[in-house]
Amino acid sequence: MGRLWERYQLPLYLGAAWLGAGLGLCFPGLASWGKSFLWPALAVLLLFTFLQVPFRTLRQAFRDRAFFLAGVVGNFLLVPLLVYGLLHLLPPDLGLRLGVALVLLVPCTDWFLAFSHLGRGDMAKALVLTPLNLLLQLALLPLYLLLFFGEALWAYHPDPATLVGAGLVVLLPLFLAFSLQGRPWGKALASRTASWPVPLLALVVFLVALGHAGLLAGLWGYLFLLLGVFLLYLALALGLSLFLARAFRLPAKAGRTLAFSLGTRNSFLVLPLSLAVPEAGLAPLVIVFQSLVELLGMVLFLRLVPRLF
Rank of each mutant, 00 (worst) to 15 (best):
P199A: 10
K253N: 10
A17P: 01
L273G: 03
Y156H: 10
P54F: 07
V164K: 04
F248P: 08
A217T: 13
L147T: 12
F206W: 02
R56M: 11
V229E: 00
L163F: 15
V100D: 03
F149L: 08
T49C: 00
Q181E: 13
L174F: 15
S291G: 14
G85K: 01
P54M: 04
F55P: 02
E279K: 00
G29D: 08
L262T: 07
A155T: 07
V100M: 06
W33I: 08
L47Q: 02
L275M: 14
L203Q: 04
N133R: 04
M298H: 14
L118K: 15
T109G: 00
L14G: 09
Y222L: 03
E279H: 06
P173Y: 04
M123T: 10
T130V: 04
L285T: 07
L176C: 02
R59D: 12
L105T: 04
F50W: 11
Y144N: 02
L134I: 06
V73H: 08
L96N: 00
E6R: 13
A61E: 03
V229R: 00
P278A: 12
G281Y: 04
P158S: 05
L189G: 11
V198L: 04
Q52P: 06
P91K: 01
L94Q: 01
L236I: 12
T264H: 13
L90G: 05
L78I: 11
W196C: 00
A237L: 00
G218Y: 01
L203S: 08
P131H: 07
L51G: 05
A245R: 15
G71Y: 11
A101R: 02
A17Q: 01
G150F: 09
G186Q: 12
W111A: 09
A217N: 12
T109P: 03
V277Y: 12
L295C: 02
H212W: 13
F76Y: 13
K35F: 07
V229C: 01
A190W: 09
A209M: 15
V79M: 06
A41F: 02
Q181K: 15
L240S: 10
Q52L: 00
L81D: 11
L240N: 08
L234P: 00
Q290P: 05
P284S: 05
A276V: 02
A17G: 09
V198M: 01
R192A: 14
G221S: 13
R192D: 11
W39C: 06
L223T: 02
L215D: 14
R256F: 11
A254K: 03
F230I: 12
W5D: 05
L146G: 13
A190Y: 10
P197Q: 07
